[in-house]
Amino acid sequence: MSVKPDYSRPLDLRHGVVEMAHGAGGRAMQQLITELFARHLGNEFLQQGNDGAVLPAPTCGQRLVMSTDGHVITPLFFPGGDIGSLAVHGTINDVAVMGARPLYLSASFILEEGLPLADLARIVESMARAATAAGVPVVTGDTKVVERGKGDGVFIATTGMGTLPDGLDLGGARARPGDAVLISGSIGDHGIAVMSQREHLRFDSPIVSDSAALHELVAAMLATGADIRCLRDPTRGGLAATLNEIAHQSGVGLLIDEADIPLKPAVAGACELLGLDPLNIANEGKLVAIVAAGDVEPVLAAMRAHPLARDSAPIGTVKPDSRHFVQLQTRLGGCRMVDWLNGESLPRIC
């Protein structure tokens, strides 16, 4: 009698859903990993199938940078991206704005029972495309499944690791009075793209998330050799939160000019409609740079030469201010404070 070769029915990626068994440590989990995660995200580290990835130590003169980020977005798919690409871009950017070259990612998936496998496949494929395009592989991962009603489809936590040359410091405490404040493009695109999807708003020209990996842009900026004091990506809380963070960390004030801040008309329109301030809206593919006054030209030129930062603009200056206020010169010629977002971003009613 001949022994039948091992056979298991392939994952039903068209009609199947995530089941508790997919996280239970048995054959079903192994199948999900092999047929979905390893298939798309596969690389030399992941393929070894060990509990962790063994990575080369940084060379002399380099330090390690590590950053982690949990992604819990609703809806999972939005114009310009999805939770998968976002989980890659978000973490790469956190490493990149430290001045580091991102090298590796880890990904931890928390799946909700009932999530269509087709959605999960779409997310993993998108994640793989983003990681490949960025040249930053996912070298280790984890999958857990929670009961229906205890998750929101899928949560993805990613950790990024990169190397930073000795002597380079782009921390938020380095802004000095007189420095210039630059932004790499229009603000609010990501938050409004997601929100318009959530609120079923339609626009003549659809608003697309700016979700993108910024490490090459950062590398191009650093290559100018200019005196860049700090970099930060204005994600949650928007530009307002990032500028307030820098003002507090550096013990300075910031004065920005409303007319200089790039803003797409459709985003401005959506903000009007929803009663929101674009300064508080999240970005996922923009960075703020604080640059020594004399070095603005080369940095701005390098930014504008990069496809992700063509609309870069100087938007303000760093001022001495013991209260660490961020102030905005309005288009009308008045001045107002730009505060952190209060609580949730709740729309005004009339």
């Binding site: 301030d277 905005l328 010169q329 309005t330 288009r331 009308l332 010629g333 008045g334 001045c335 107002r336 005004r348 009339c350």
Partner: peptide, 15 residues
């Protein structure tokens, strides 16, 4: 309140 908000947001008091 809409006017209060507009006065503050546009910094009209300065004008």
């Amino acid at each position: 309140g809409g006017h209060t908000h507009a006065l503050s947001r546009y910094g009209l008091v300065d004008l």
